[in-house]
């Protein structure tokens, strides 16, 4: 028991460290891939870390007439990202925080971060901040139910909304990944991951075009360490969501209860490889895709919500569905 606890603890700590250190690298990797595919040299994989270091050294500034929501938003965003990174089963399902890795808790934490940032954007009182916040909340309103419903579809076969339990069941019977419920949920979750992390085709993280930007509009007024925190937290959320996608649908390599240190190491490696692969895939996709017009985004998200709902229906109704 204590050995189990130890390995679980180590796995969790490793996971958190990996997300903290690796998230900017993932973003760097994705930028590098895009750059190479577009025929540019690129700034190198560690560039986001250099940016963060530069930002952290700057003096913190605050716009006039802003209050505590503006100051708290980066902290809440980064804090929730950190907690989610600790509880989600990315490296091992035997984490001591497993009982907190509940579907509803994780979704609520992610939503909390988004809402905090939206409030921060509103608090600046600028046109861009309000616009970004309003768009973000529109997207959020469709994204959250989709995450809930699609993971719920997956939870039917596990009989629990605990993410660890779901991953365990999938790992025990990998053919289940090919069932309609699982496939539908995978597509739905992939779409909302893209929306939630503000990637093409929902949002473009590398422009500041007022017609279309969502995330960038909210953080326009931040600078220095605050901006660094937000940038890092966004990267961490991307990492965690991609990692979760990997754990749910490609559960190979995730360490389970009662396995030793080697399994944990394999879990770490598997997590790093899977997340990097998904990130590269996403980056390649972005090169070939155009951003959707803003008013078509709800269509995309409503579609993914429908897929998630059909996934639930399939897992309940079809004999081989779950």
């Amino acid at each position: 028991m204590s050995g189990d606890l130890m390995s679980g603890l180590i796995a969790t700590v490793l996971q958190v460290v990996l997300v903290i250190a690796g998230a900017p690298l993932l973003v760097g990797l994705m930028r590098q891939v895009r750059a190479r595919m577009e025929g540019r040299a690129g700034a190198g994989v560690p560039q986001p870390w250099r940016d963060l270091r530069k930002l952290l050294r700057k003096e913190p500034t605050e716009p006039r007439d802003t209050g505590w929501p503006f100051r708290l938003a980066p902290l809440v965003l980064a804090g929730t990202a950190l907690v989610v990174a600790a509880v989600v089963p990315l490296v091992s399902t035997a984490s001591p925080l497993d009982s907190a890795a509940d579907l509803f808790a994780v979704t609520a934490l992610l939503a909390l971060g988004s809402v905090a940032l939206a409030l921060g954007g509103l608090d600046t009182g600028t046109a861009f901040g309000g616009m970004g916040a309003s768009r973000e909340v529109t997207v959020l309103a469709l994204v959250e139910p989709t995450i809930l419903v699609s993971v719920f579809a997956l939870s039917v076969r596990a009989g629990s909304t605990n993410l660890g339990a779901i991953v365990n069941v999938t790992e025990a019977d990998p053919m289940r990944v090919l069932s309609p419920a699982s496939l539908l949920a995978a597509v739905a979750l992939a779409v909302v991951t893209i929306a939630e992390t503000g990637r093409i085709p929902v949002d473009n993280p590398s422009t500041h075009l007022e017609l279309t930007m969502i995330h960038e509009a909210m953080v326009l007024e931040y600078s220095g360490p605050d901006l660094a925190l937000i940038e890092w937290a966004s990267a961490a959320r991307l990492t965690v969501l991609l990692g979760l996608l990997g754990s749910l649908f490609l559960p190979w390599g995730v360490a389970t209860a009662g396995t030793g240190a080697l399994a944990v190491l394999i879990g770490v490696a598997a997590f790093a490889v899977k997340t990097a692969a998904l990130g590269v895939l996403l980056a390649v996709g972005e090169v070939f895709m155009a951003k959707l017009r803003l008013f078509r985004i709800p269509e995309l998200l409503a579609g993914s919500f429908l897929l998630a709902l059909l996934a639930v229906a399939a897992s309940f109704f079809l004999a081989g569905g779950a």
């Binding site: 090919l178 539908l184 269509e299 059909l310 399939a314 079809l318 004999a319 081989g320 569905g321």
Partner: peptide, 24 residues
């Protein structure tokens, strides 16, 4: 049994998905 159920479910899933995507 389980192969049959799974393949059938897969075919039905594709059938449903194609129908719904027509709306999209």
């Amino acid at each position: 049994d389980s192969m049959y159920a799974q393949w059938l479910a897969l075919a039905c899933g594709a059938f449903l998905l194609a129908g719904v995507l027509v709306l999209w």
